[in-house]
Design a protein around this nucleic acid. Structure first.
Lengths: 144, 144
DNA sequence: TTTATTTCGGATATTTTTATCCTATTTATA
DNA sequence: TATAAATAGGATAAAAATATCCGAAATAAA
């Protein structure tokens, strides 16, 4: 469904969010350890999230990654996914046709649309804040 | 969502189904042309579908690929997807956790479950027959 | 201003997926 | 039985995704 990069990106963002509640910045090293991902690869993904302004980075001593905790409520999963995997999951044809729309649909167009709309709705209505709060309260987990 | 291999596999199966209505067998060459896919790669995918008994092959002169047209109604998309991509799309964790269940859920476990159930329902309730009939009647298309 | 710390970003390596090629095997028909 | 026509399947190649490494640039604090 999502690429590895995207999975890491989502988990990393959640961990950063948790720390930002307490105004703490975190390093790729801490993040990778916490979400059980390869450190250097994770760092690359963080760069992409910074470029897309999903998270913020501060260079130098006492630096690290953070998110604006006042915006946590408004940062949605969809933004993270789009920043990393692009919007193919939204717009692409389920069977890979270059041109696939109501006028020229692929065989699963209509049926696929429903599933994708459900996915889209989920991604656009799930905030980083709620995911982070679930981790904080022990309801969910970032690694096995 | 699906791998390229799976996209080709679904489209190939539909084309084979259309021809099986008229008891015609088709070759990888014809299939690849019709669904706009690389021929040799498509042939490999057909082999996998044969191994999983989704379609049938007949070697030698006048051979080719076919499906039992009496079973078309009962061949579901889910069988094709499982034969090619495995059942990771059904059982795998949305964020890639090795262990992710009700007792130890990843951050998106509950929300993801709904989307996946919808997808699962769609795949398990869509038959090769209906997809093939839509192509035959010009309602949908196998290539752009 | 120097130093230690930290992210940035380019180069490279590894693995997986996608794709190709060629020979072996099977089978219907002449 | 010989031949032509097909699929089967192993070996490779190419491309994309995943992952690693290292020096450059930025920054806070001593």
């Amino acid at each position: 469904m999502f690429s590895k990069a995207c999975e890491y990106g989502i988990k990393a963002s959640i961990f950063i969010a948790i720390n930002s509640f307490e105004d703490k910045r975190v390093s790729p090293k801490e993040i990778a350890k916490e979400i059980n991902s390869p450190e250097a690869f994770t760092a690359k993904i963080l760069q992409a999230l910074v470029r897309h302004k999903v998270i913020n980075s501060v260079k130098g001593a006492y630096g690290g990654f953070e998110v604006n905790k006042n915006e946590l409520k408004h940062i949605k999963l969809s933004q993270i996914v789009k920043a990393i995997d692009g919007d193919n999951i939204y717009n692409g044809c389920g069977l890979g046709l270059e041109k696939c729309d109501e006028n020229h649909p692929c065989p699963v167009h209509e049926k696929f649309k429903e599933v994708r709309n459900e996915l889209k709705h989920m991604l656009e209505n799930t905030s980083l804040e709620e995911l982070a709060l679930d981790i904080k309260s022990g309801v969910s987990f970032l690694k096995a």
